[in-house]
Amino acid sequence: MIWQQFANGLAIGSVYALIALGLTMVYGVLRILHIAHAGVYALGAYVGLLVFRFIPNFWLALAITMVASSFAGIILQRYLYAPLLALPRIVPLIASIGLFIAMEEIFRLIAGPYILAFPADPGLGGIEWGIVRITNNQFLVFLVTVSLLATLWFVMSKTKLGLAMKATSQDLEIASVMGINTERIIATNFLIGSALAGAAGVLVGVYFNSVYPTMGSIPAYKALAIIVLGGLGSIPGTVLGGLLIGLGETLLLGLINIPFPRDALAFIIMIIILMFRPYGLLGKE
């Protein structure tokens, strides 16, 4: 039983990590809380579903979604955030919240307020392993997140681009003095982050077989708790935070059955940890 919960928690947690990663990457270079990131995630789910309805192939839908959502991310960066960066931090924050609200409304007006089914079958099959049953969909989530995370890890640590991205997130000014084209790095951060969010949208849409306008609401705020836990801007911290929250929620609620809403739990975990580590798990001052 506990191992089954563990598998469930891990699946949820890895999706959380995927969503929160983009948020962390954006925070790392621009120091803004990109709430509308969850809008990109919901957009991804809708785009994926749209593609899937024309050509019912999961992998194609996933690929096109990632391209489309990375476009969306770059547009947001260029036309919404870029002009606001020099202003007090609350300005891009409010703009981002405004955008998120507007995006949810646009989804509702275009696709309707209903829950749409996303019955994709990537043809992977599930795994029975003793008493633990990893379902078809869980397996899909693991497979896709692990390959995306591995790719991200490779890019970040083994390529010149990754090095430049790291330098930029450590200190934008120094990086640009060092001759790094920080404009492009910022755009790249949005591109990768938004692609990951879009992928997460498709995965969650398929996992729960549902796509709906406000599906980004809870992830929007939970992802904040996760990136704070991880130490705002730390990529390994974010993955750790995502898994921790996913597991924490599932295990606490599944085993102890405390009468508490799942979504407040993430924040309780976050607040408690922040009291001991005010800069998050892997964050620096």
Binding site: L93, Y221, A225, F260, P261, F267, M270
Partner: peptide, 28 residues
């Protein structure tokens, strides 16, 4: 008090957390 330990964006998100937790207490 929890807000005193954290600054800026950590503070902003901590206050979101407080909102969710307080609301959950009312609800549950």
């Amino acid at each position: 008090i929890p807000c005193l330990r954290v600054r800026e964006d950590f503070l902003a998100i901590t206050t979101i957390g407080i909102n969710f937790v307080v609301q959950a207490v009312f609800l549950y």
